[in-house]
Nucleic acid binder design. Sequence first.
DNA 1: AACACTCTCAACCGCGTCGGT
DNA 2: TACCGACGCGGTTGAGAGTGT
Length: 317
Amino acid sequence: MMDVEGNSNSNSSSSTTQSDEEMMVDLRRGPWTVEEDFKLIDYIATHGEGRWNSLARCAGLKRTGKSCRLRWLNYLRPDVRRGNITLEEQLMILELHSRWGNRWSKIAQHLPGRTDNEIKNYWRTRVQKHAKQLKCDVNSKQFKDTMRYLWMPRLIERIQAAAAATSSSTATSASPAASTNHHLINNNEVGTGNLVMPHGVIGNDFGVSHVTPSYTPENSSTAASSDSFATQVSPVSDLTTDYYHIPVNHNPNPDYLFQAGQGGYSESMISPAGYFNQGLDFQAMEHNSNQWLMESGDTSDNLWSPEDIWFLQQQMM
DNA sequence: AACACTCTCAACCGCGTCGGT
DNA sequence: TACCGACGCGGTTGAGAGTGT
């Protein structure tokens, strides 16, 4: 078939080959103009979403229904969140991806305002890049365990550190932000594996809290107080001490191991120390993962934006 | 300043699935 | 039951921005 720009397209076996949208002539492609955006917004405001092909026609847009749908869902929808992926969202993405793989739309359902496209892009540009740096496949057990044992615990540390810093700096103001953050901290049932995740997801449904034994009272040499994560936030170099002594198989928590078919990760629950026997440079991984966390764009300065506060408040309801 | 290279992300593509006829 | 159009998903692309030399 010929595409709208008159270029030959040899792949014509798509199920949409004969659809109206592709029979139309003079269709536009490429970046949307402001006028097109307004047309689409206006039409949806009046008539609602759905029936994208007829919507495109009726709205006077020389676009395919697919294109209109994509533009609306990924960009124009009023509840689309824009801006950097927060630390909490990063943590969610890593964890949910470990469960579901490339089920981007499913993952996006747990990140309000984020689109599957955005999450997919994040994964490809950030996570896969670092898998490449580590010279391992993004789907390999080594990489997944690196995420689980190093990056995700580090993300949690940074989240807690940022929360603690914010709450301590605003302790006297009793602002909503401060109370929200404190609530988050106190709801992290340290040692029980119950981490309060964004969007109301409880940590023991995930693996992340199960592989951070440095947070468990019985394992942590620094966890003097379960409600004071500020005292537990270790400097980067602490990673070496902490993660090389993960007593993976000795966690008393019965939920410690993932159940097959749920997390699907029980087969990967080996100690990082085991990697030394496999010739994996775990210190290099640690270095790279720390670098990644430093590069990831989110600092404690912008961690609790009004958006995030609202977001977290929703989780507490 | 100019060029090369890398990164980001909006948009497109092909395919599978679903629902209506 | 088969067919067809619409929809949604995951993979991929490419333009523009950003950064390094």
